[in-house]
Nucleic acid binder design. Sequence first.
DNA 1: CGTATTCTTGACTTATATCAATGTCGGTGG
DNA 2: CCACCGACATTGATATAAGTCAAGAATACG
Lengths: 245, 245
Amino acid sequence: MVGTLLTGDERNAALKIDRAVVKSLPLFDKMSDDDLDALLSRATSRRVAPGEAVFEQGRPATNFYLLLHGRLKVTQVTEDGQQIIVRVVHPGDLFGFARALQRTDYPGTAIAAADSVTLCWATDLWPSFVEHNPRLAVSAMQTIGQRLEEAHTRIREMSTEEVERRVAHAVLRLTKTAGRKEGEGIRIDFPISRQDIAEMTGTTLHTVSRILSAWEAKGLVEGGRQKLLICDLAGLALLADTPKE
Amino acid sequence: MVGTLLTGDERNAALKIDRAVVKSLPLFDKMSDDDLDALLSRATSRRVAPGEAVFEQGRPATNFYLLLHGRLKVTQVTEDGQQIIVRVVHPGDLFGFARALQRTDYPGTAIAAADSVTLCWATDLWPSFVEHNPRLAVSAMQTIGQRLEEAHTRIREMSTEEVERRVAHAVLRLTKTAGRKEGEGIRIDFPISRQDIAEMTGTTLHTVSRILSAWEAKGLVEGGRQKLLICDLAGLALLADTPKE
DNA sequence: CGTATTCTTGACTTATATCAATGTCGGTGG
DNA sequence: CCACCGACATTGATATAAGTCAAGAATACG
């Protein structure tokens, strides 16, 4: 059943659920029911299996998206084939609105890390949306502003901090955005590899592996294949904020 | 004369000039004369001497600005005192609109690198501006979008390229945004130190100095105290895009 | 002119990448 | 159900790019 295309009925059912979910998002909570319905009536829902791409770097930006469920990694590859993770997309995030930023193609590739569900609109709808609903424009701008700040934070970290602290900061951010309580610790709630963490922090999987091993020995985290459990948040935070002496 | 405060008359004169200058900017070219007048009537003009700050990191974001003339560096300092250059502000750029991005304080410090002139508005005016003129909101979003892309480019470079290529890319960007033809070469049109370049690329002034010395030996550039002249643009571009073999 | 930045250059150190080998998990198909 | 395979992870040895430390030279400015 899972993996088959939705029938018309199933799609309606999905949209009904969406409405409550979407309404609960900060981005849309101020929107009238009518406007929201107009929005959702033009959206299509799509399920994305792990490893599958929602859109690919360099392809024409035909759609923009909202992640309802799951987790995506947005990556970029350089000409010589090196890959970095630009950001992780969490449920409730708008993504892929390249066109709104005066681009005609997607600057990155969005790949599902976990089983995911997206809402999808045609790019041409964006201008009318923001025109009809200035709040949405403002919200979108705030969202981008936050991303810009995150990007600057990352640049600052890469410029001034050694690898271990950068990894610590990255992991701490993940606990905030994708953490789920689990017993004594906090579980990163989607499959994430050492390689992924390396691509988020500008280092190699080898170095990440060594660092995580060291942390595990100190009781800060518990590792595993594509798994990460943070046991001592305070300890990690201390490490993240302590310049090398 | 330069360096004295403007009298009322001089200020009006400045504003008349501004009108033509501002009108020529992509950000405002679609705006009606009336709206533009409304905008300018609420703006104040300010001259900033080199080394002087337009606003400072952490201070309440009371104003937003437009750079008419000169050149600014936007910097951030970390808790432990390390500084990075977030971006360079060029004439025609809107800057310091932190409030539009849901911030109450400035995330960085804007310092004049050269003698500069800014237009300045109270932050509270922003919402009414964008409401009156949706195009402005869209334009502003595109601007931020571009900055976001630049930031990602920088992250990608810092993750995957060695220092020399990063410096090459940074210098090439400067030639595009602040280059002025001078004889056979292209002059970076504002005072920029080795330290500045280091803070733009996440390295040290020592390394930058060595790199520039090597380039000078190869005839790619000509250095100088806070000066940089690019002699062989193609050569630099080649260097920037050649992965170490 | 002398004082303070800014820049250059050399010697040395170190963090982190690279290279290489081995181990472990988890899903797939026989 | 077990064995195998591929993806992911660990860990050691080694190399190296770039940082740090240190000293001095060049340039601009008051």
